[in-house]
Amino acid sequence: MLRVRSVDASYGRVQALRGVSLHVDAGEIVTLIGANGAGKSTTLAVISGLIRAQVGDIQFDGRDVTNRPPHRLVRAGICQVPEGRQVFGDLTVADNLLLGAYSRWRRGGRSEVMADIERQFERFPQLDERRGQLAGSLSGGEQQMLALARGLLSRPRLLMLDEPSLGLAPIIARQFLDEVQRSRDEGLTVLLVEQNARAALRIADRGYVLETGRIVLEGTAQELLDNPEVQRAYLGKGYREVWE
């Protein structure tokens, strides 16, 4: 579904990605793990058109989408839930969701969008209770749920999540990832960036390990969980995960 081939990207003079190649097949959860500054978020930003790829190409559904502007990529079916949630704090929960459907407001027709919004409210009852509240007044977990619901409202075929568990209590993070898994079971394809490697690999089908802008390892989630290098560097072998 998504194929990224030897992409380079940089911020000014600092090169952030060096020949990154990866692919995501339909119906998979693929995770990118790695340390701070390894290039995980940059990879997502390049795919969603926020940062230019200097070299390499990106294909989505067999079509070349390299360096397309972000709004066209959203219409093509790629949606990113940005890091740190970035809900619109001064707008109500309902307005946030309406903005999620921004790209298909004209084409899909209002009533379909409204029905979709109601469906998200059914799925996330906490949001339903707060639909008229300002999004800035929600808790971190609720904001992350809102960001997910908002992203889903663009009806993406590929959803990219950037560090969704950041700043969430472990139990909330777990609930969130369960929701992601549920979306996958309903047919969504997910590319998940996480620092919490164990949590990400628990729900993922496959994964890639990024180190200083390069992909150093790839495999099924189980292979990565069993890999001694991964265990040492990212899973903290010998330490039981606090929230499991």
């Binding site: 969603s48 926020l50 972000p70 709004h71 959203v74 219409r75 949606c79 990113q80 839930v81 940005p82 970035q86 809900v87 619109f88 704090g89 001064d90 707008l91 307005d95 903005l99 999620g100 921004y102 790209s103 908002r150 992203g151 663009s154």
Partner: peptide, 15 residues
């Protein structure tokens, strides 16, 4: 209002 609030998030939603 969205782009005033968070330009990045507005972009990721197709604005």
């Amino acid at each position: 209002r969205a782009l005033h609030d968070s330009e990045l998030a507005a972009q990721t939603l197709g604005v």
